[in-house]
Design a protein around this nucleic acid. Sequence first.
DNA 1: CATATTTTGACAACCGTTTTCGTTTTCGTG
DNA 2: CACGAAAACGAAAACGGTTGTCAAAATATG
Lengths: 123, 123
Amino acid sequence: MSTRREAVRQALSGSSGFRSAQDLYADLRAEGSKIGLTTVYRALQALSDSGEVDVLRTDEGEAVYRACDTESHHHHIVCRVCATAVEIEGPTVEKWAAEMGAKHGFTGVTHTVEVFGTCASCS
Amino acid sequence: MSTRREAVRQALSGSSGFRSAQDLYADLRAEGSKIGLTTVYRALQALSDSGEVDVLRTDEGEAVYRACDTESHHHHIVCRVCATAVEIEGPTVEKWAAEMGAKHGFTGVTHTVEVFGTCASCS
DNA sequence: CATATTTTGACAACCGTTTTCGTTTTCGTG
DNA sequence: CACGAAAACGAAAACGGTTGTCAAAATATG
Ligand SMILES: [Zn+2]
Ligand SMILES: [Zn+2]
Ligand SMILES: [Zn+2]
Ligand SMILES: [Zn+2]
């Protein structure tokens, strides 16, 4: 677990929202770090591979990352303005997705569920 | 409504699954059409703007399109192998998403829900 | 038929991400 | 501490999907 990867993890933990690789790179450089963009991408890749951070794609196709409190399966409600996210759980949704899969003869069923809105302080 | 846009719409309707712009371009060229890739992108843009086709992003960030039977709000269960998709509705999920938004003080709440799996014929 | 408008497609530019590769840092061992 | 192997690093180039540019072609208008 290298120092650089730790720096990226911390930069990410410092925010409650989803951030892109370039956001984090800018943050770290602004703090005086000499980290390279490549390393930020590599760190994020490793962190998401190990399940330590969540990834999702914006409508524009950019990958954004978040250091969530729990590593167990969950979803998010994300502010469209400031990207702040709240972790949410949905037993209802979990069951529904599984049922839908079975009903249509699909196996190995997974799902992606994200909720978007404008948070209280951005309203 | 130009001829080319109509050609793209038809190429898309010919498939039951989600297809990328480049997929459709390849299909059309294979059929002998002299359409350009730029035009395919433009047609898909217009079709999705007008709500005639659904768009979603793959994990790799590629945009894929589908001509769905209904233009009203719905979700999909998508085969990870052949990209075939089935339209599904989830009143349960709709309600759940709205509740979650309200509970956390978010306004203008929307959601994305997609289910993935391996379809019967690909298993 | 002449002219204005729109559509088209080859090509270049763009942007986020990955690969490449030579250098630097870290780490295990004597 | 010294040394070499291995891992991490960063700059720059390559990549792949998408969008912008612009002149040519098609279509509409009078
Ligand atoms: Zn907000
Ligand atoms: Zn879930
Ligand atoms: Zn299938
Ligand atoms: Zn819905």
